[in-house]
Simulated scan of single mutants.
Amino acid sequence: MQGSFTNEMRERLGGAVNHSKGVKIDLTEAGIVIDVYCYIQFGATIPLLAQNIQDSIRETILNMTGLEVIEVNIHIVGVHFERQETVSFDELEI
């Protein structure tokens, strides 16, 4: 997760939202709403992964605070692929 004071102030003043920080929590009259922005590894099952994240967050917040979470929204903002080893031209056998 990334972020800075400058990014936070820009978002609060109506600037572009920076999703690289990872988590946004809103405390409303109805309850807690959590937005999670994450990157996934290529090949992961998105619905299963999202459900596991949602369940884990709900359980953790309830155990730590006793507050009920009404929404946990999972936003997939990117996919990471495995890095392939690069071979330099000098290493090639000809």
Rank of each mutant, 00 (worst) to 15 (best):
L92A: 09
V87I: 15
G78C: 06
L27R: 09
I34T: 03
S20G: 12
S4G: 06
S4V: 01
S56C: 06
P47Y: 03
T86R: 10
L13T: 11
I40K: 00
N52Q: 09
L13K: 07
V33K: 04
R83E: 15
H80G: 07
R83P: 04
V36Q: 01
R10E: 15
Q84K: 13
V87R: 10
M64K: 11
G31E: 01
H75A: 09
A50T: 09
Q41C: 02
Q84E: 13
K21E: 05
G66D: 05
Q41Y: 04
T6G: 15
E8Q: 12
Q2P: 06
N63G: 10
T6E: 15
E11Q: 13
R10H: 14
V72G: 04
N18L: 05
G31M: 02
E11K: 06
N63A: 15
V87L: 14
I53K: 00
H80D: 15
R10S: 14
I94E: 14
T86I: 14
N73P: 05
V69Q: 03
H75E: 10
V33R: 02
Q51E: 12
G22M: 00
N7R: 05
Q54I: 11
Q54W: 06
V33S: 04
S88F: 08
V36E: 00
I57N: 01
P47F: 02
G43A: 01
E82S: 09
N7V: 07
G22I: 00
L62D: 10
E93A: 12
N18G: 05
S88C: 07
T60R: 14
V79G: 03
L13P: 01
G22C: 01
I34R: 02
L27K: 09
C38Q: 03
V33T: 07
Q51L: 10
A16V: 14
H19M: 10
A30N: 12
L27I: 15
I40H: 00
A50N: 05
A30T: 11
R83Q: 13
N73Q: 10
V69M: 08
N73G: 08
I46C: 04
R83G: 08
E85H: 14
R10L: 15
Y37T: 02
I61E: 00
L92R: 13
V33Q: 05
G78V: 03
V36S: 01
